[in-house]
Nucleic acid binder design. Structure first.
Lengths: 346, 346
DNA sequence: AGTAGTTAGTGATACGATTAACTTCACACA
DNA sequence: TGTGTGAAGTTAATCGTATCACTAACTACT
C-alpha cells in the first residue's frame, strides 16, 4: 500500500506537507500543492487512509444506526425502512457513510467499537448492554422511540395518547370486545397470550406506553383490562404476526383488534381471511404507523411520521457532533387515518 | 477516554496482556484474564477501540456497499432493497457491520477511505472513479450487475437474453408497436427520447446489454430498431418514470411497453391510467425484477433473484476476505412471470 | 538597518491498539 | 546437576495520519 510517506518521499517534501495538501490546502503554496497531488496520482495514492486519519483526528466520517435484532429488519420492516430513509435524506450523507450496527444475539460484545462518530439508536430494550458500551466510549447518541436515557436526546411521539386514540376510535364505533396484538414485550422468544404479570415485565418502553394507553382507554369505557385479550407475536414480521393473529381470533370473541404496527394489523387481516371473517363487517382492524403498506391494504391506522423522525434524529445528531448544546427531546404529532378496515360494530 | 494502557496500569500488567485478554484468551492464565476483565469493567473500559485495532491489524470488521447515487435508494428502490436484504441475510453479519457508502455527486473524492474490509459494488457506471480508489487501496471487491472489471468477481444475470425474452413475450402476443422505457443510460441528467447516438454512449453495462437484447429481438422479428421508441427516465423512481412514460405513450402509438425495471413498468401503468388506456386491452406492460411491488400490481415481469444475488455477493466477498482463490463469476437464472398486465394485441 | 509580521514548510509526537520476538519461571526428566 | 519444554507475560516496533511548535526566508514598515 502506498502511504503519505511514500508520496512525501517521491515529491521530496515532508509527510506533513502531503497531509496539508489534502486537508489544509491554504497552508501550502499553490505550486507545491499541485506538485504533491501529481506525485500522488502518479503513485496511485488514493488519498489519506481513513483509519489512520480517524485514529489521529478522532473522527471517522461515518454515522451508525443501531437497530433491534438482525440487520435484515433494516430492509424488511416497513417502518424501520422509513426511518432510515429519513435519516439518509439529510443531505449531509453526501460525504458521510452510514453504518448499520448489528446487535449480536448474545448482546455482550457489540460489534460497535468506535468506528462511528455518532449513533442513532432505534427501539432498543431499556437495559441493552450495547448502550452502556456506547456511553462509556463517549459517542454522541440520539435515541428514536426508545429507550429514554438520562442526558440523551429523544425523538418520539406521544405513544400513550396515540394508543388511547386507537382504541377510542373503535369504542366510538360501538365495539366492546376489543383484542390487542403486540409485536414483542420482552425479547425472550415468547409468543402467545399475555397476562398482567408479563405486561408488567415489558422491557420496551414504547410497547409499555402503548399498552398503558390501551388500558386507560378501556378502563375509561368501563372495560376490565384483564379481560381484554392481548397477544404477543414475538416478532415484527408477518411470519410472527399471522399465527399470533390466528390465535387471538380463534380463542376470543372479538369484534375489533388494534395492532402496535401496521404489519401486525395486516397479519390480522390475513388471519381474518383464513377464518372467513369479513372486514370490516365482522371485524374491525386498526394499525399503527401508516407505513406504505397500510395504504394499499386500506388499513385504518395511527399515522406517525417515521421519515420525519429519521430526518430529525439525524439533524439532532449532527448538532451534537457540531458541539451544539444538547438539543431538547422532540415529540412528533400523530394522526388517525380512517380507511376501510374499521367500521361500526355489527 | 479510558484506553488499554489505563486498564493495564490499573491491573498492574502490561498493555499487551490486556490486548491478549480480549483477543487471545488462551495466552493468559484464567485468573489473570479475569482480573484484567474485572479491572476493565471497573474502569468502564468498553473493549478495544476499533480504530486503533484496525490501524494495526488492517481489519475493521465492516463490509461496505457502494450504491449508485444517494443512499436514499438503498431504502427506497425495491430491487436495491432486496439486494441489501440478501447481503445482510448472510449470518456473518451478526458481528460485522454494514456500511453504506455514498457516492458524492462530484464523484471525485469518494467518502470511501478504507474503513471497510471489503466492498460490494452495485450498478455503477463503467468508469466511475470510486472504483479506481477502491482498487488502489487493495480492498477486495465483488461486483453485482455492473461494471465488469478485470480480476473482479461478478454476480449477475444474462441481461441480454432476459431482455430479449421480455420483448419476445410481447411479440408472441402479436404486438408489433413496442416501446421501451429505461431508467438511465448516462448519469448526466438527461431525460427524454433516446436516439442511436445516445444508445451507443450508454455507460451502464446492464442497460446497454438489455437494450442490445431488445434490439436483437426486434430485428429478429423484422422490426427496424431505430423506429422503436425508447425513452430514458433519468432516474429510478416513479417521480422520474411517470413523466417519461407519459411522454412515451403520448408521442408514440404503441400497443406494448417493456421497462428495464418494475418501477418503470409501474410508471407506465400509472401513465396509462392518466391517459385512459386500459391494461392489458389497450396496452401491455412488462417489467423487470419481479420486486415485491410487481405482484401487487399484477405486473407481468422478468424475475431475477435479487435477494439471492445479494447473498451470493456477500458470500463471494467473504471468500475473498478469507483469502480463498478468486471465485468465478456467477450467472443467475431469470424467468418470465406472466400476470395481468400483458395480453394479446387487440 | 532593525524589527515585526507573514508565509511556506519541517520535525516530532501522539492517537490506541496488535503482535513478533524475547524473557522468566517452574517443572519434569535423565 | 544440567537441560529441555511449555506456560505466562513483557518489550518494543509498527500501523497511517494530523497537528502543534517551530524555523527560515521573505516582506513591509519605521
Amino acid at each position: 500500500m502506498v502511504t503519505m510517506k511514500d508520496v512525501a518521499q517521491a515529491a521530496g517534501v515532508s509527510q506533513a506537507a502531503v497531509s496539508y495538501a489534502y486537508n489544509r490546502p491554504e497552508k501550502l503554496s499553490e505550486g507545491q500543492r499541485r506538485a504533491i497531488m501529481e506525485t500522488a496520482a502518479r503513485l496511485g495514492y488514493a488519498g489519506p487512509n481513513a483509519v489512520g486519519a480517524s485514529l489521529r483526528s478522532g473522527r471517522s466520517g461515518a454515522i451508525g444506526v443501531m437497530l433491534m435484532d438482525t440487520l435484515e429488519y433494516a430492509f424488511t420492516d416497513p417502518s424501520t425502512r422509513c426511518l432510515l430513509e429519513g435519516i439518509v435524506r439529510t443531505r449531509r450523507f453526501d460525504d458521510l457513510a452510514l453504518t448499520l450496527l448489528p446487535l449480536p444475539r448474545g448482546g455482550e460484545q457489540a460489534a460497535l467499537r468506535g468506528l462511528v462518530d455518532g449513533v442513532i439508536v432505534h427501539s432498543l430494550p431499556d437495559d441493552h448492554p450495547a448502550l452502556l458500551t456506547l456511553r462509556s466510549r463517549g459517542i454522541p447518541i440520539v435515541v428514536v422511540d426508545a429507550p429514554r436515557l438520562p442526558g440523551v436526546p429523544l425523538v418520539g411521539i406521544a405513544d400513550r395518547a396515540a394508543a388511547r386514540e386507537q382504541v377510542e376510535h373503535l369504542l366510538g364505533l360501538g365495539h366492546r370486545r376489543v383484542g390487542i396484538i403486540a409485536e414483542r414485550l420482552v425479547p425472550d422468544g415468547f409468543r402467545g397470550p399475555v397476562d398482567a404479570g408479563r405486561r408488567a415485565r415489558c422491557t420496551e418502553r414504547v410497547v409499555r406506553e402503548r399498552i398503558t394507553g390501551y388500558q386507560e382507554a378501556c378502563e375509561a369505557a368501563g372495560l376490565d383490562f384483564d379481560h381484554v385479550p392481548l397477544v404477543e407475536a414475538g416478532g415484527f414480521d408477518l411470519a410472527a404476526g399471522v399465527p399470533a393473529a390466528l390465535g387471538l381470533l380463534s380463542d376470543n370473541e372479538v369484534t375489533a383488534v388494534v395492532g402496535t404496527s401496521d404489519t401486525m394489523a395486516i397479519a390480522v387481516l390475513e388471519a381474518a381471511r383464513e377464518l372467513d371473517l369479513r372486514v370490516p363487517e365482522d371485524l374491525s382492524v386498526v394499525g399503527f404507523d401508516d407505513a406504505p403498506e397500510a395504504g394499499s391494504h386500506g388499513l385504518t391506522t395511527m399515522r406517525q411520521p417515521m421519515v420525519h423522525k429519521g430526518q430529525l434524529a439525524a439533524e439532532l445528531l449532527f448538532a451534537l457532533l457540531r458541539g451544539d448544546p444538547r438539543p431538547d427531546d422532540v415529540n412528533l404529532p400523530t394522526e388517525l387515518v380512517r380507511r376501510r378496515t374499521s367500521g361500526p360494530c355489527g
